[in-house]
Write a protein that binds this DNA or RNA. Structure first.
Length: 271
DNA sequence: AGATGTCCCTGGAAGC
DNA sequence: TGCTTCCAGGGACATC
């Protein structure tokens, strides 16, 4: 499922190619998570500028306003001069002078939302509560520790909440906690500063590594060019219940936290 | 206000 | 074989 690395890989795969394109047509399939928020025809004739990312949202900057794209858990984007005819799971399509951008999303947890600007209430609702970007300088170890001190929920759930740091989804939360040697059930406010610093480093390292490898293909991820990622070859704990820990050979355990599966090594993650 | 539970959706796997 | 049930998960929202 697309987490920050996958979304960033997707962005990089088409941002330069779509920049400067003019919107020629819009096709809409079944409803996605939220309504588009404008008439599809209102987008026609506008030019696409830059494509940026905030957390797991892609921001397509247009002449007037922007499109917020979210891939949900099963979404992927394609961008090519010519695409095959739309399939049953292709729910949004932006036809431009440089090619067609298409959202393929079988489970329809994804979204395409139009906002007039970043100050638009619709944009603020989606982006306003997001935490800092983990791969930017604003993600500071000491501030991270201070933020964790304010929270009594388990560290895994605090990471997933995304209001301290964005982009860490279910896969990379388990992986980062393994790398940091921390038990996922540990209360966030009980994490010492050295451990918080370690977790900070682990989050950055896990995300950067996944990004360098082209994202995860644990489900059905591929970039807008159709390239698949390789992170799955690398997972230390995610999806490995009962298998031997790659470090100490102890069987990996699976638990549920907040309706989500969590994987950890009971030996390597003792604190 | 922070923590927790619910819901949205479909395809694939598991169970009977 | 063919049905039903369960599960995956991001994140807004409701509830405590």
């Amino acid at each position: 499922m697309p987490e920050l690395p996958e979304v960033e890989v997707t962005r990089r795969s088409f941002a330069d190619r779509i920049a400067g394109a003019r919107v020629l047509g819009v096709q809409v399939g079944k409803p996605l998570r939220w309504p588009l928020g404008c008439a599809p025809e209102a987008l026609i004739g506008q030019n696409v500028g830059s494509v940026t990312r905030r957390g797991k949202y892609l921001l397509l900057h247009l002449d007037r306003g922007l499109l917020l794209l979210h891939l949900g858990m099963s979404g992927s984007l394609q961008f090519a001069p010519a695409l095959a005819p739309r399939g049953v799971h292709d729910h949004f399509e932006l036809q431009t002078s440089r090619g067609t951008l298409r959202l393929h999303d079988p489970r329809r947890f994804g979204a395409v939302v139009h906002a007039e600007s970043l100050a638009d209430p619709r944009a603020l609702k989606l982006l306003g509560g997001l935490g800092v970007e983990p791969l930017e300088v604003g993600f500071d170890p000491v501030m991270f520790h201070q933020a964790l001190q304010q929270r009594r929920a388990s560290v895994k759930q605090v990471l997933l909440a995304g209001d301290i740091v964005v982009g860490v989804g279910n896969i990379y939360a388990s992986e980062a906690l393994f790398m940091a040697g921390l038990r996922p059930t540990l209360r966030a406010d009980r994490i010492s500063r050295p451990r918080a610093v370690r977790l900070h480093g682990a989050i950055v390292a896990v995300l950067q590594r996944a990004l360098a490898l082209g994202g995860s293909t644990l489900r059905d991820f591929s970039s807008a060019e159709g390239q698949t990622g390789y992170f799955q070859l690398d997972a230390m704990v995610y999806g490995r219940e009962g298998q031997a820990c790659r470090v100490c050979a102890t069987p990996i355990r699976a638990i549920r936290q907040g309706q989500r599966s969590t994987f950890f090594c009971p030996q390597c993650q003792r604190s």
